[in-house]
Simulated scan of single mutants.
Amino acid sequence: MDSAARRGRLALLLVAADASRHALGRLAPEARAATRLTVASREALGRALGRRTVAVAGVTDVALAARILERELAPAGDDESSGSRQDPEGQVP
Rank of each mutant, 00 (worst) to 15 (best):
R67K: 09
D18F: 06
G77K: 08
T38F: 08
A4P: 00
A31E: 00
E89Y: 11
V39P: 02
G25F: 04
A63L: 11
R85D: 10
L45C: 08
R42C: 13
L69G: 05
L69N: 04
L69M: 14
L49Y: 09
T35V: 12
A34I: 01
R7V: 10
G50L: 03
A76M: 10
R9W: 03
L64F: 08
G77H: 15
G46P: 05
A48L: 15
G90Q: 09
L37C: 03
V92L: 15
A66C: 04
G8F: 04
P93W: 12
E43R: 11
D87M: 10
D79F: 13
A5M: 09
T38P: 00
S81P: 00
P75D: 15
P75Y: 07
Q86I: 13
A63D: 12
V56W: 02
L37H: 05
A57F: 06
P29L: 05
P29D: 07
T38Y: 05
L13F: 03
R71V: 04
E30Q: 15
R9C: 04
R67E: 11
G83I: 09
A33S: 09
G25K: 03
L27I: 12
R36W: 02
A16K: 02
V59K: 01
R52K: 14
E80M: 13
A11S: 14
R42I: 03
G46R: 11
R51S: 14
V15K: 08
R21Q: 12
L37R: 13
M1Y: 08
A57G: 03
S84E: 15
H22I: 10
A5E: 10
L37I: 05
A16T: 08
L12M: 04
T38K: 04
T53E: 14
S20V: 04
R32T: 06
A5C: 11
A11W: 02
A31V: 04
L64W: 07
R47E: 13
A44S: 15
P29I: 05
L73Y: 14
V59H: 01
G25M: 06
V39C: 02
A16E: 05
A31R: 01
T53S: 11
A33P: 00
S82A: 13
E89S: 13
G25P: 08
S81E: 15
V39F: 00
A23I: 07
G50W: 03
E30H: 08
R21Y: 03
P29T: 07
D61W: 01
A31F: 01
A31P: 00
I68S: 06
E70W: 14
D79E: 12
S3V: 13
A16M: 05
A28R: 07
A19F: 07
G90Y: 09
L27P: 02
Q86L: 15
R21N: 10
A11R: 09
Q91E: 12
G58Q: 10
D78A: 14
A65D: 02
A65L: 06
P29M: 03
L69Q: 13
A48I: 00
L10H: 04
A28Y: 01
A33F: 00
S41H: 00
A17T: 09
Q91Y: 10
A40R: 14
A44C: 05
T60A: 12
V56K: 00
L12V: 02
R26K: 15
R9P: 00
A57H: 08
A65K: 03
G77I: 01
D18I: 01
E80S: 14
